[in-house]
Simulated assay, not measured.
Amino acid sequence: MNRAWAVHGVLRPYDLMALAGLARGRSVQEIAAAIGTPYETLRNRILRLRQRLGAASCAHAVAIAYRRGWLSGLTAEPRPSVLLSARQRQVLALMADGLTNRQIATALGISEDTTGTHARRIYAVLETSRPGATPAKAARCHAIALAYQHGHLIPTKEQSR
């Protein structure tokens, strides 16, 4: 049986294309159109990938992919050097761990509104906004990818399952 497509027995041939699209801040609809796959098919593939990875969200799946080195070949998007506050780095790290805004607020002892404000500022500083993109999901995936690409988050080696 040919398993050349598998990365540690977890990824399917189309998974890296989906992860790269998510890392670039593309919506599932945009990725589906770009790779010529029906939207529902790709959405289901991403859901199954998240299940295999134990990822709470698409942004968490992108973070796992960076931690495991699967997206190390993805060219970093050019961005000016920016500084994030210590709190923004904390929020970003918890986003990468798959926590929701409510869970982040609880973990940091702040309000959910404050967490949302931190998230929006992170998106603005990292320049994740794109016309027509779904801000909450696409921007979060894009912010996580940019944070790994530009050293705001350091990919620690995560064991493959």
Rank of each mutant, 00 (worst) to 15 (best):
Q90E: 15
I110T: 14
N101Y: 12
A55E: 11
H60V: 00
R45E: 10
A55F: 11
G36E: 09
L49Y: 11
E77F: 04
Q103H: 11
P38H: 15
A107F: 01
D97F: 04
W70Q: 03
L108T: 09
V91T: 15
L47P: 00
R43E: 12
I46K: 08
R48C: 08
L94N: 01
E112D: 14
C58T: 09
I46Y: 06
A61M: 06
L94M: 11
R52F: 08
L94R: 12
R43T: 01
T115K: 06
A59L: 00
G54C: 07
P38K: 15
A56S: 15
L83K: 14
P78W: 09
I110S: 10
A18S: 13
L53T: 03
A20D: 10
A105F: 11
D113A: 15
L42F: 06
L84M: 04
R26C: 14
R67K: 07
S72K: 10
V28K: 11
I31P: 03
L108G: 07
V62P: 10
R45C: 02
V28C: 03
G69Y: 06
R102Y: 15
R43S: 13
R43W: 07
G116F: 05
A63M: 01
Q90L: 08
A18F: 01
Q103Y: 07
G73F: 06
R26G: 05
Q90P: 02
L42H: 06
R87Y: 11
Y39G: 03
A63F: 03
E112Y: 02
Q90T: 05
